[in-house]
């Protein structure tokens, strides 16, 4: 393992790299070991309690559970946006608590794509500008950056919306822009927190189709959802309650 784990496999690995290296090793992309996340100082709130979880490349995982069960907290930890109060989170075998902020940020930028329920686009930027945001500070020439961002929008059928601001777009379009932003870096892990929660059924179905198309041998997709039919499409379903994982089911029969 290199000292720069995120510029070398498994993190930051280009998708053209020999596939299967991770899978044959059985090496997880990310590993939670007895992780707890406690909020508050005087009154402690356990958002996550002693959770262990491994996320493997190529996985399509749904996380379900009632409101307040710790799903979002878990997603934040998986995305290295947050650090555990206790326990260890390992990315490519390295404890993320030992990484400094620039390295953790680089890890997020290179290998993780987030999608949120409220889309979370930057309001003063166009669709293209929002997607480009994910490619900043990477020594990419502005022209190349624009091209890549435009390509990502085009892939999701949004090329006509490139110059539109968020307020000029429908919810479905905004969420697709957010998706384009998440995939433009070609990340190894896509984390989505109820991505269809704010959409009508037609738009939700469209967005789910996109998520399914994102499946690949190297990439893991983790999606928090309320919708049982959405959860049913995932190959692995993790159920949570009161900050604990109460079920971790693997769906055997593969439907296409």
């Amino acid at each position: 393992m290199s000292t720069q784990p995120f510029d070398t496999p498994p993190y930051g690995v280009p998708r053209t790299a020999p596939p299967g290296v991770l899978r044959t090793d059985g090496e997880p992309l990310l590993e939670l070991e007895n992780v707890s996340r406690v909020y508050g100082e005087e009154i402690e709130v356990y958002a996550l309690r002693d959770v262990s979880l491994r996320i493997l490349p190529g996985e399509f995982m749904s996380i379900v559970g009632p409101s307040g069960s710790g799903k979002s907290t878990m997603l934040g930890l998986l995305g290295v946006l947050d650090l555990p109060t206790s326990g260890t989170i390992r990315v490519a075998g390295q404890d993320v608590s030992t990484l400094d902020d620039p390295t953790r940020s680089k890890l997020r930028g290179n290998s993780i794509g987030f999608v949120f329920q409220q889309f979370h686009l930057i309001p003063h930027l166009t669709a293209l500008g929002n997607v480009e945001t994910a490619l900043l500070y990477r020594d990419i020439a502005p022209r190349d950056r624009r091209e890549r961002a435009y390509h990502a929008l085009d892939q999701l059928g949004l090329s006509a919306r490139a110059d539109h601001r968020p307020v000029q777009m429908s919810g479905g379009e905004q969420q697709r822009v957010a998706l384009a932003r998440a995939i433009v870096t070609d990340p190894l892990m896509i984390l989505a927190d109820e991505p269809t929660g704010a959409l009508d059924s037609a738009n939700a179905a469209h967005v789910l189709d996109i998520f399914r198309s994102l499946e690949s041998a190297e990439r893991a997709v983790v999606m928090v959802t309320h919708d049982p039919t959405v959860a049913g499409t995932a190959r692995r379903k993790v159920s949570m309650r009161d900050g604990r994982i109460v079920a971790d089911e693997q769906r055997v029969e593969a439907t296409t």
Partner: peptide
């Protein structure tokens, strides 16, 4: 603050 959170999520560091 939301913009800041978004930027952090897409990989902009604290110092950036």
């Amino acid at each position: 603050s939301a913009e800041i959170g978004i930027r952090r999520a897409v990989g902009h560091s604290r110092s950036k």
